[in-house]
Design a protein around this nucleic acid. Structure first.
Lengths: 204, 204
DNA sequence: GTCTATAACTAGATAGAC
DNA sequence: GTCTATCTAGTTATAGAC
């Protein structure tokens, strides 16, 4: 009976709407996307959308909540499955980058349209994003304490790593030379070199 | 008689308008900013703006052209003033990061509102951004050829470096613990570690 | 569950007074 | 150079037929 999906209702229609909204919000932005354009992409009239959603704003809220929830949960699982700061950082970076290639539109929208949320909605979303960032900071801090990592400033390094990965959503191209796995591997390698203590745990 | 400013006319009024537009486009996005809101911030009526600009779109074009031009020129000067791939990369990264802290709103808008440009305008702006990116790619390539840098893929590394720096505009806070110089130094250090060949040119 | 029609409002832009 | 007034078109959202 009950499906795996926890928070959001997800009948076929609402999922189609969310997917189309992601596409258009990514292409033109939330305020740059009229409800009519969204309806047109779904081959319906604008009025029909309001049977499924009470407002355009609520579509955005659903998209962001869903994406941030998936990001946070996926990151926690990835980190929990690895042992030691080095392996955990690799797992975290790989997850972060893979998400930003495979789900680049959602990821991009979740980063860029926070400002389009009404203040009440923004709080909940921002809280989740902060928890996501803290996972990276904690992970770096533990690595520094263990002597595996060397960074001048944990917070700056965490933001550098996060935005570097987030940026993938802005340049990655699905049909390009490199696939998600190749990019994720290279990012993990670069980031390891960036934070790793000299002559510690190098691979040939 | 003629001033240093090359392309854009810059009497006091148009500069005030551009500054206010940057603020609002950053806060709410181009499509999320009504002309009336811009006028209100400048304590004038909406109609008055059209004495200085023919359209809202043209304000955006002016902002982006000006910012991208400054970015490109500043980067070229910074690189030209340094000798050798290592020093040039440090100079480039420092310039890039400093710009994204000191001019964070402009820099952010220039990255996020390309999609709000009419296609005709977009071409010119995109061309300049591509030239900016190429400076980093060339610089990395020369370093690899000289054996100073080791990267798996020059294009990926260049995008990683660029988006890492661009990301600074999204988290840097003017009144924060670290100033622009401190952040720029840390980024330069992290990025050097990221691309530098092992046991080459290290500083203590 | 989707349509048509429309209400209520806001958008960008213009005209002409001062 | 700025104001007031206004035009036209587009915006989100609702109501009621089917």
């Amino acid at each position: 009976m009950a499906e795996a999906q926890p928070t959001l209702s997800s009948d076929d229609a609402t999922r189609r709407i969310r997917r189309a909204a992601v596409r258009l919000f990514h292409e033109r932005g939330y305020h740059g996307t009229p409800v009519r354009a969204l309806a047109q992409m779904l081959r319906m009239e604008a009025g029909s959308l309001y049977y499924h959603f009470p407002s355009k704003q609520q579509i955005l809220v659903d998209v962001l909540e869903g994406t941030l929830e998936e990001l946070l949960q996926g990151l926690q699982e990835a980190v929990a499955a690895a042992r030691g700061p080095r392996a955990q950082l690799v797992a975290a970076v790989r997850f972060h980058v893979l998400f930003h290639t495979r789900r680049r539109e959602e990821a991009f929208v979740s980063g860029s349209e926070l400002r389009s949320l009404l203040p009440a909605h923004r709080r909940a979303i921002t809280a989740r994003r902060d928890r996501y960032e803290r996972v990276f900071r904690d992970l770096l801090r533990r690595g520094v304490e263990a002597g595996v990592f060397t960074v001048s400033d944990v917070k700056v390094a965490a933001m550098a790593i996060l935005t570097m990965g987030t940026g993938v959503a802005s340049w990655f191209w699905e049909g390009g030379r490199l696939g998600p796995e190749a990019v994720a591997d290279q990012y993990a390698e670069m980031i390891l070199r960036m934070v790793q203590s000299a002559r510690k745990g190098r691979r040939p």
